[in-house]
Design a protein around this nucleic acid. Structure first.
Lengths: 143, 143
DNA sequence: CTATATATTTGTATTATACAACTATATGGA
DNA sequence: TCCATATAGTTGTATAATACAAATATATAG
């Protein structure tokens, strides 16, 4: 059985990614990486670069640099870990939270305008299936 | 009505993209950009950089560089346009087609293993919705 | 026949990423 | 207790994908 659906997904995914990555630059003042890192800190609370790197599936050095950019912008604070003087916690600031919310809203608005003609059913299903895909990949990677 | 589905989609999409972009490096010997360009030439036939850039939503210079990488690898041939001596056609070679097919198969296999436990219905729907999303964006951009 | 438009390439810059080398601190075993 | 090794994080270096601007060569319209 040569699964037709797989073929369709495979083809659509490449377009999907390119489209999103390219277009979001034009409407977001926070770049992807910063947005995702901020969202992570906002959702799961303060963490060090090692944990963040694991959770975001990035190299520690990558997160270290991204975090220091956010520190410079005062979006996060770098707090020494009192129990381990090698380690730090990055914690989102009020300014950072505000910036995150503003960005989230912009992304939301844009998505909303793209999907304005979709049925509620389709929107719901699309979200569910994306989540299902991500969950499936997570399970496969960390069984 | 603050659409919950939008919120879910917005959140899932960022993870989705990162996951795919990062993991595909480990199993593909052709990088994203090369793969997409080759696939374009294979699907729609020979074209010049201007056309390709439009179709792929990239800058002409970007395509120019990507194309020349493929030329060096003998995956595509650069053919002067007989009607316009400024212009060229890039045409996929047999080697390129072979490479493309091999890569497509790898991507397919990987996707297949990720989605092995999904129902046919879900796979079908996921592909359809991704396509619907891409089509919607295309319509919005080029009405 | 010249001025402008067009197809493409090349120079330069930016962003996101990884790997390797390094620093500072923690920890476990003799 | 002290040293060897492990760990948290940063910094140096490299690569890939991208865009914008400048340059080149050719086409086209008045």
């Amino acid at each position: 059985m040569s699964d037709e659906s797989l073929d369709l997904i495979e083809r659509q995914v490449t377009d999907f990614i390119r489209r999103i990555v390219l277009t979001e630059k034009t409407y977001s003042n926070l770049d992807r990486s910063a947005y995702i890192l901020l969202r992570q800190l906002s959702t799961y609370g303060p963490a060090g670069v090692k944990t963040l790197a694991q959770d975001l599936h990035l190299d520690i050095s990558t997160v270290s640099r991204q975090a220091s950019v956010l520190v410079n912008k005062k979006y996060v604070e770098k707090i020494p870990n009192p129990d381990d003087r090698r380690a730090y916690y990055y914690q989102i600031t009020d300014v950072g939270s505000h910036e995150l919310e503003e960005n989230k809203q912009k992304r939301f608005d844009r998505l909303s305008s793209i999907l304005e003609d979709w049925s509620d059913e389709d929107k719901k299903r699309f979200g569910e299936l994306l989540k299902k895909y991500n969950d499936t990949v997570n399970e496969k990677l960390n069984p």
